[in-house]
Protein backbone atom coordinates (compact mmCIF):
# COMPACT_ATOMS: atom_id res chain seq x y z
CA UNK A 1 0.00 0.00 0.00
CA UNK A 2 1.07 3.54 -0.56
CA UNK A 3 -0.54 6.60 0.87
CA UNK A 4 -0.55 10.22 -0.21
CA UNK A 5 -1.15 12.89 2.42
CA UNK A 6 -2.09 16.37 1.26
CA UNK A 7 -0.16 18.84 3.41
CA UNK A 8 -2.14 21.61 5.04
CA UNK A 9 -0.67 25.09 5.03
CA UNK A 10 -1.25 28.00 7.30
CA UNK A 11 0.39 31.41 6.96
CA UNK A 12 3.20 30.10 4.78
CA UNK A 13 3.98 27.29 7.22
CA UNK A 14 3.16 23.63 7.49
CA UNK A 15 0.00 23.40 9.58
CA UNK A 16 0.10 21.29 12.70
CA UNK A 17 -2.84 19.19 11.46
CA UNK A 18 -0.59 17.56 8.83
CA UNK A 19 1.35 15.68 11.54
CA UNK A 20 -1.96 14.25 12.78
CA UNK A 21 -3.01 13.13 9.30
CA UNK A 22 0.37 11.42 8.83
CA UNK A 23 -0.38 9.57 12.09
CA UNK A 24 -3.63 8.31 10.56
CA UNK A 25 -1.65 7.22 7.48
CA UNK A 26 0.78 5.31 9.71
CA UNK A 27 -2.16 3.54 11.33
CA UNK A 28 -3.22 2.35 7.86
CA UNK A 29 0.35 1.25 7.11
CA UNK A 30 2.44 1.45 3.96
CA UNK A 31 4.71 3.98 2.26
CA UNK A 32 3.69 7.54 3.03
CA UNK A 33 4.22 10.44 0.65
CA UNK A 34 3.24 14.01 1.46
CA UNK A 35 2.11 16.39 -1.27
CA UNK A 36 2.92 20.06 -0.76
CA UNK A 37 1.17 22.19 -3.38
CA UNK A 38 1.41 25.95 -3.44
CA UNK A 39 3.61 28.86 -4.40
CA UNK A 40 7.07 29.26 -2.81
CA UNK A 41 6.53 26.29 -0.54
CA UNK A 42 10.15 25.17 -0.05
CA UNK A 43 10.08 25.75 3.70
CA UNK A 44 6.79 23.90 4.03
CA UNK A 45 8.24 20.95 2.12
CA UNK A 46 11.26 20.87 4.42
CA UNK A 47 9.01 20.85 7.47
CA UNK A 48 6.93 18.04 5.96
CA UNK A 49 10.10 16.02 5.31
CA UNK A 50 10.81 16.00 9.05
CA UNK A 51 7.51 14.30 9.89
CA UNK A 52 8.14 10.81 11.22
CA UNK A 53 7.00 8.03 8.88
CA UNK A 54 7.10 10.05 5.68
CA UNK A 55 9.30 8.55 2.95
CA UNK A 56 8.94 11.20 0.27
CA UNK A 57 7.68 14.76 -0.02
CA UNK A 58 6.35 15.72 -3.45
CA UNK A 59 6.35 19.43 -4.15
CA UNK A 60 4.13 21.14 -6.72
CA UNK A 61 5.37 24.73 -6.64
CA UNK A 62 3.32 26.95 -8.92
CA UNK A 63 1.22 30.08 -8.73
CA UNK A 64 -1.77 28.06 -9.89
CA UNK A 65 -1.83 26.26 -6.53
CA UNK A 66 -1.50 29.40 -4.42
CA UNK A 67 -4.52 29.85 -2.15
CA UNK A 68 -5.33 26.13 -2.50
CA UNK A 69 -8.21 26.66 -4.91
CA UNK A 70 -10.16 23.44 -5.28
CA UNK A 71 -10.25 23.26 -9.07
CA UNK A 72 -6.49 23.13 -9.83
CA UNK A 73 -5.63 21.29 -6.61
CA UNK A 74 -8.24 18.65 -7.43
CA UNK A 75 -6.77 18.20 -10.92
CA UNK A 76 -3.29 17.77 -9.44
CA UNK A 77 -4.51 15.12 -7.01
CA UNK A 78 -6.27 13.29 -9.84
CA UNK A 79 -3.02 13.29 -11.83
CA UNK A 80 -1.08 11.79 -8.90
CA UNK A 81 -3.68 9.46 -7.38
CA UNK A 82 -2.95 6.43 -9.56
CA UNK A 83 0.26 5.87 -7.61
CA UNK A 84 -1.64 5.36 -4.36
CA UNK A 85 -4.09 3.15 -2.50
CA UNK A 86 -5.16 5.95 -0.15
CA UNK A 87 -5.23 9.75 -0.41
CA UNK A 88 -5.71 11.59 2.88
CA UNK A 89 -6.23 15.20 3.87
CA UNK A 90 -7.18 16.91 7.09
CA UNK A 91 -10.90 17.59 7.54
CA UNK A 92 -10.26 21.32 7.34
CA UNK A 93 -12.02 23.71 5.01
CA UNK A 94 -9.23 23.07 2.49
CA UNK A 95 -9.47 19.29 2.71
CA UNK A 96 -13.25 19.32 2.65
CA UNK A 97 -13.19 21.60 -0.36
CA UNK A 98 -10.89 19.58 -2.59
CA UNK A 99 -11.07 15.90 -1.67
CA UNK A 100 -14.61 15.21 -2.95
CA UNK A 101 -13.47 16.49 -6.36
CA UNK A 102 -10.74 13.87 -6.41
CA UNK A 103 -13.16 11.15 -5.30
CA UNK A 104 -15.76 12.06 -7.92
CA UNK A 105 -13.24 12.27 -10.76
CA UNK A 106 -11.82 8.86 -9.80
CA UNK A 107 -15.38 7.51 -9.39
CA UNK A 108 -14.88 6.39 -5.78
CA UNK A 109 -16.76 7.13 -2.58
CA UNK A 110 -15.17 9.44 -0.05
CA UNK A 111 -14.91 8.75 3.67
CA UNK A 112 -15.26 12.03 5.52
CA UNK A 113 -13.69 12.95 8.81
CA UNK A 114 -12.51 9.53 9.97
CA UNK A 115 -11.70 9.20 13.68
CA UNK A 116 -10.25 5.67 13.77
CA UNK A 117 -8.55 3.20 11.46
CA UNK A 118 -9.88 -0.36 11.88
CA UNK A 119 -8.00 -1.78 8.90
CA UNK A 120 -6.75 -0.59 5.52
CA UNK A 121 -10.32 -0.53 4.18
CA UNK A 122 -12.45 -0.03 7.31
CA UNK A 123 -12.76 3.17 9.28
CA UNK A 124 -14.84 4.82 11.97
CA UNK A 125 -16.50 8.16 11.45
CA UNK A 126 -19.06 10.21 13.33
CA UNK A 127 -22.51 10.73 11.83
CA UNK A 128 -25.57 12.68 13.04
CA UNK A 129 -23.46 15.40 14.66
CA UNK A 130 -21.41 12.84 16.54
CA UNK A 131 -24.48 11.20 18.09
CA UNK A 132 -23.59 7.95 16.37
CA UNK A 133 -20.33 6.41 15.23
CA UNK A 134 -20.41 4.49 11.96
CA UNK A 135 -17.94 1.80 10.99
CA UNK A 136 -17.66 1.95 7.22
CA UNK A 137 -15.89 -0.34 4.77
CA UNK A 138 -14.83 0.81 1.31
CA UNK A 139 -14.40 -1.71 -1.54
CA UNK A 140 -12.89 0.94 -3.85
CA UNK A 141 -9.31 0.42 -5.04
CA UNK A 142 -8.58 4.03 -4.14
CA UNK A 143 -9.67 5.32 -0.75
CA UNK A 144 -10.18 9.07 -0.56
CA UNK A 145 -10.53 10.29 2.99
CA UNK A 146 -10.51 13.29 5.23
CA UNK A 147 -9.22 12.87 8.76
CA UNK A 148 -10.36 14.53 11.98
CA UNK A 149 -6.96 15.69 13.17
CA UNK A 150 -7.84 15.72 16.87
CA UNK A 151 -8.57 11.99 16.78
CA UNK A 152 -4.93 11.10 16.02
CA UNK A 153 -1.82 12.07 17.99
CA UNK A 154 0.70 14.02 15.93
CA UNK A 155 3.78 12.15 14.72
CA UNK A 156 7.19 13.35 15.90
CA UNK A 157 9.49 15.53 13.80
CA UNK A 158 12.43 13.16 13.65
CA UNK A 159 12.12 12.07 10.05
CA UNK A 160 14.27 12.86 7.03
CA UNK A 161 12.25 12.21 3.90
CA UNK A 162 13.44 12.94 0.38
CA UNK A 163 11.97 15.95 -1.40
CA UNK A 164 11.07 15.77 -5.09
CA UNK A 165 9.43 18.19 -7.46
CA UNK A 166 6.18 17.25 -9.20
CA UNK A 167 6.16 18.28 -12.84
CA UNK A 168 2.40 18.22 -13.34
CA UNK A 169 1.03 21.72 -13.68
CA UNK A 170 -2.63 22.21 -14.47
CA UNK A 171 -4.55 25.17 -15.86
CA UNK A 172 -7.32 26.93 -14.07
CA UNK A 173 -9.67 29.13 -16.04
CA UNK A 174 -12.65 28.48 -13.81
CA UNK A 175 -11.91 30.20 -10.52
CA UNK A 176 -9.85 33.12 -9.36
CA UNK A 177 -8.70 34.15 -5.90
CA UNK A 178 -9.96 37.63 -5.03
CA UNK A 179 -9.02 38.16 -1.41
CA UNK A 180 -8.89 36.89 2.12
CA UNK A 181 -9.77 38.34 5.48
CA UNK A 182 -8.06 36.27 8.11
CA UNK A 183 -8.45 37.01 11.77
CA UNK A 184 -5.02 38.12 12.89
CA UNK A 185 -4.25 36.92 16.34
CA UNK A 186 -1.21 36.11 18.43
CA UNK A 187 -3.21 33.33 20.01
CA UNK A 188 -2.86 29.71 18.93
CA UNK A 189 -5.22 28.34 16.31
CA UNK A 190 -8.46 26.94 17.69
CA UNK A 191 -7.96 23.51 16.18
CA UNK A 192 -4.41 23.12 17.53
CA UNK A 193 -4.54 24.94 20.89
CA UNK A 194 -3.73 23.05 24.10
CA UNK A 195 -6.21 25.21 25.99
CA UNK A 196 -9.48 26.61 24.63
CA UNK A 197 -11.84 28.99 26.42
CA UNK A 198 -15.22 29.48 24.76
CA UNK A 199 -18.11 31.81 25.38
CA UNK A 200 -21.78 31.22 24.72
CA UNK A 201 -25.00 33.17 24.68
CA UNK A 202 -24.53 33.79 28.39
CA UNK A 203 -21.71 36.21 27.55
CA UNK A 204 -24.46 38.68 26.66
CA UNK A 205 -22.55 40.59 23.99
CA UNK A 206 -19.49 40.53 21.76
CA UNK A 207 -17.82 43.17 23.93
CA UNK A 208 -18.00 40.88 26.93
CA UNK A 209 -15.73 38.40 25.15
CA UNK A 210 -12.87 40.66 26.34
CA UNK A 211 -13.48 39.01 29.74
CA UNK A 212 -12.15 35.80 28.18
CA UNK A 213 -9.07 37.44 26.70
CA UNK A 214 -7.19 38.02 29.94
CA UNK A 215 -7.65 34.40 30.92
CA UNK A 216 -6.71 33.23 27.42
CA UNK A 217 -3.51 35.31 27.62
CA UNK A 218 -2.53 33.75 30.94
CA UNK A 219 -3.22 30.20 29.76
CA UNK A 220 -1.96 30.57 26.19
CA UNK A 221 -5.45 29.63 25.10
CA UNK A 222 -7.42 30.04 21.90
CA UNK A 223 -10.84 31.65 22.18
CA UNK A 224 -13.90 29.90 20.81
CA UNK A 225 -17.64 30.35 20.89
CA UNK A 226 -20.84 28.36 20.75
CA UNK A 227 -23.12 28.50 17.73
CA UNK A 228 -25.63 30.42 19.86
CA UNK A 229 -23.03 33.16 20.41
CA UNK A 230 -22.26 33.23 16.70
CA UNK A 231 -25.93 33.30 15.72
CA UNK A 232 -26.50 36.13 18.20
CA UNK A 233 -23.84 38.09 16.31
CA UNK A 234 -21.40 38.31 19.25
CA UNK A 235 -18.44 36.87 17.35
CA UNK A 236 -17.55 35.67 13.83
CA UNK A 237 -18.32 32.16 12.63
CA UNK A 238 -14.67 31.10 12.44
CA UNK A 239 -14.66 31.05 16.26
CA UNK A 240 -17.46 28.53 16.38
CA UNK A 241 -16.80 25.24 18.18
CA UNK A 242 -19.30 22.52 17.34
CA UNK A 243 -20.49 20.15 14.68
CA UNK A 244 -21.11 23.03 12.30
CA UNK A 245 -17.88 24.76 13.33
CA UNK A 246 -14.49 23.56 14.55
CA UNK A 247 -13.92 20.24 16.26
CA UNK A 248 -11.45 20.71 19.11
CA UNK A 249 -9.89 18.34 21.63
CA UNK A 250 -7.52 20.39 23.80
CA UNK A 251 -5.99 19.41 27.14
CA UNK A 252 -8.28 21.91 28.83
CA UNK A 253 -11.59 23.27 27.55
CA UNK A 254 -13.36 26.00 29.50
CA UNK A 255 -17.00 26.58 28.53
CA UNK A 256 -18.35 29.89 29.81
CA UNK A 257 -22.04 30.74 29.60
CA UNK A 258 -22.61 27.78 27.27
CA UNK A 259 -25.64 25.60 27.98
CA UNK A 260 -24.24 22.56 26.19
CA UNK A 261 -26.42 21.92 23.13
CA UNK A 262 -25.71 18.60 21.42
CA UNK A 263 -24.22 20.41 18.48
CA UNK A 264 -21.69 22.18 20.73
CA UNK A 265 -20.81 19.02 22.66
CA UNK A 266 -20.07 17.30 19.34
CA UNK A 267 -17.29 19.83 18.83
CA UNK A 268 -15.53 19.58 22.20
CA UNK A 269 -16.47 16.45 24.10
CA UNK A 270 -13.17 14.76 23.32
CA UNK A 271 -11.28 17.42 25.28
CA UNK A 272 -9.16 15.92 28.06
CA UNK A 273 -10.49 18.12 30.86
CA UNK A 274 -13.68 20.16 30.58
CA UNK A 275 -14.57 23.05 32.87
CA UNK A 276 -18.06 24.59 32.76
CA UNK A 277 -18.99 27.96 34.20
CA UNK A 278 -22.71 28.66 34.05
CA UNK A 279 -25.31 30.30 36.23
CA UNK A 280 -27.90 27.59 35.47
CA UNK A 281 -26.97 24.55 37.51
CA UNK A 282 -29.27 22.38 35.36
CA UNK A 283 -27.40 23.26 32.17
CA UNK A 284 -26.53 20.09 30.20
CA UNK A 285 -22.90 21.22 29.90
CA UNK A 286 -22.41 20.10 33.53
CA UNK A 287 -23.17 16.51 32.49
CA UNK A 288 -19.94 16.38 30.51
CA UNK A 289 -17.82 18.75 32.60
CA UNK A 290 -15.09 17.40 34.86
CA UNK A 291 -15.33 20.55 36.95
CA UNK A 292 -18.44 22.67 37.09
CA UNK A 293 -18.77 26.05 38.73
CA UNK A 294 -22.25 27.48 39.14
CA UNK A 295 -22.40 31.23 39.32
CA UNK A 296 -22.36 34.60 37.60
CA UNK A 297 -19.68 34.60 34.93
CA UNK A 298 -19.25 38.36 35.26
CA UNK A 299 -17.98 37.81 38.80
CA UNK A 300 -16.21 34.52 38.20
CA UNK A 301 -14.15 35.49 35.13
CA UNK A 302 -12.32 38.49 36.68
CA UNK A 303 -11.62 36.45 39.80
CA UNK A 304 -10.35 33.52 37.76
CA UNK A 305 -8.07 35.81 35.75
CA UNK A 306 -6.59 37.30 38.91
CA UNK A 307 -5.93 33.88 40.44
CA UNK A 308 -4.24 32.21 37.51
Amino acid sequence: MSILVLAEQHDGQLAETTAHVVAAAKAIGGDIDVLVAGEHVGAIAEAAARLDGVSRVRVADSAVYAHQLAEPLGELLVALADDYSHVLAAATTTGKNVMPRLAALKDVAQLSEIIAVESADTFKRPIYAGNAIATVQSPDALKVMTVRATAFDAVAETGAASVEAVETVVDNALSRFVGEELASSDRPELGAAKVVISGGRGMGSGDNFTLLEGIADKLGAAIGASRAAVDAGFVPNDMQVGQTGKIVAPELYIAVGISGAIQHLAGMKDSKVIVAINKDEEAPIFQVADYGLVGDLFEILPELESKL
Binding site: I133, V136, S138, D140, Q287, L293
Partner: peptide, 27 residues
Protein backbone atom coordinates in the same frame (compact mmCIF):
# COMPACT_ATOMS: atom_id res chain seq x y z
CA UNK B 1 -23.95 3.27 -2.15
CA UNK B 2 -20.83 1.20 -2.60
CA UNK B 3 -19.69 1.66 0.96
CA UNK B 4 -20.67 -1.05 3.43
CA UNK B 5 -22.11 0.16 6.68
CA UNK B 6 -20.54 -2.40 9.01
CA UNK B 7 -22.12 -1.10 12.20
CA UNK B 8 -23.43 1.98 13.92
CA UNK B 9 -22.85 2.57 17.62
CA UNK B 10 -23.71 5.26 20.09
CA UNK B 11 -20.67 7.37 21.00
CA UNK B 12 -18.80 6.75 24.23
CA UNK B 13 -20.63 8.62 26.97
CA UNK B 14 -18.59 11.14 28.83
CA UNK B 15 -19.14 11.01 32.58
CA UNK B 16 -19.85 14.25 34.34
CA UNK B 17 -17.47 15.20 37.15
CA UNK B 18 -17.87 17.32 40.22
CA UNK B 19 -19.16 20.77 40.99
CA UNK B 20 -16.68 23.03 42.71
CA UNK B 21 -17.73 25.72 45.14
CA UNK B 22 -15.36 28.53 44.30
CA UNK B 23 -12.81 29.88 41.87
CA UNK B 24 -10.06 28.97 44.34
CA UNK B 25 -11.22 25.37 44.41
CA UNK B 26 -11.39 25.30 40.62
CA UNK B 27 -7.86 26.64 40.22
Amino acid sequence: SRLTLVKVEPPAERQGGVKVGSVDELV
